[in-house]
Computed example of a mutant assay.
Amino acid sequence: MSTPQRTFARTTLDLGDVQLHPWGREPAGPERLDALVAAAADPTIALWNPLPTADPQTARAWLEAREDGWNRGTGAAFAALDTTHGTLLGTVNLRWTDRTDGQAMIGYWFLPEARGRGLATRTTRAVTTWGFRTADARRIELAHATGNDASCRVALRCGYLPEGTLRASHLFGDGRHHDEHLHARLTTDPEPSPRGG
Rank of each mutant, 00 (worst) to 15 (best):
M105C: 11
T129Y: 06
V127G: 04
W109H: 11
A120D: 05
G116T: 02
T123V: 12
L119S: 03
L111M: 15
R117L: 13
R122S: 15
Q103A: 13
T128R: 08
E113H: 13
G107N: 10
L119H: 10
A114R: 07
G118H: 00
Y108I: 00
G118M: 06
D101A: 15
M105V: 13
R125W: 07
T123W: 04
T128D: 09
A114M: 11
Q103W: 14
G116Y: 09
G107K: 02
R115F: 06
P112Q: 13
Q103C: 14
G116E: 09
T123G: 01
L111C: 10
G116N: 10
T123N: 08
W130K: 03
I106M: 10
D101I: 02
Y108W: 14
R115Y: 05
G107D: 07
G116P: 13
T124V: 15
D101Q: 14
A120W: 08
P112K: 12
G131M: 04
Y108L: 00
D101W: 14
R125F: 05
T121M: 02
G118S: 04
T129S: 12
G102H: 10
A126R: 11
A114Q: 12
W130I: 06
Q103H: 14
V127T: 04
R125H: 02
F110Y: 14
R115A: 07
T129H: 13
M105I: 08
T121I: 02
T121F: 05
G107R: 03
R117Y: 11
P112N: 09
Q103L: 14
V127M: 00
M105R: 09
L119D: 02
L111F: 12
W109F: 14
A120V: 10
V127Q: 06
G102L: 01
T123S: 09
M105E: 15
T128W: 00
T128H: 04
A104F: 03
V127A: 05
G107F: 03
D101K: 14
T128Q: 01
A104M: 00
T129I: 08
G102F: 11
L111K: 11
R117Q: 13
I106H: 01
G131D: 00
A104L: 01
R122Q: 15
W130S: 11
G131A: 15
M105D: 15
L119R: 13
G118L: 01
R117D: 04
G131P: 05
T124L: 01
G102V: 11
G102D: 11
A104H: 05
T121H: 02
A126C: 09
R122E: 10
A104E: 08
A104Q: 03
R115M: 04
P112R: 12
T124S: 13
G107L: 04
L111T: 15
Q103V: 15
G131F: 02
M105Y: 11
Q103G: 10
V127K: 08
F110L: 13
A104D: 04
A104T: 07
G107Q: 01
T124C: 14
T124H: 01
T128V: 09
T129E: 15
G102C: 13
G118Q: 04
R122W: 09
G107P: 02
W130H: 14
E113K: 12
E113S: 11
W109S: 10
V127P: 05
W109M: 07
L119W: 07
V127S: 03
R122F: 08
T128F: 00
D101E: 15
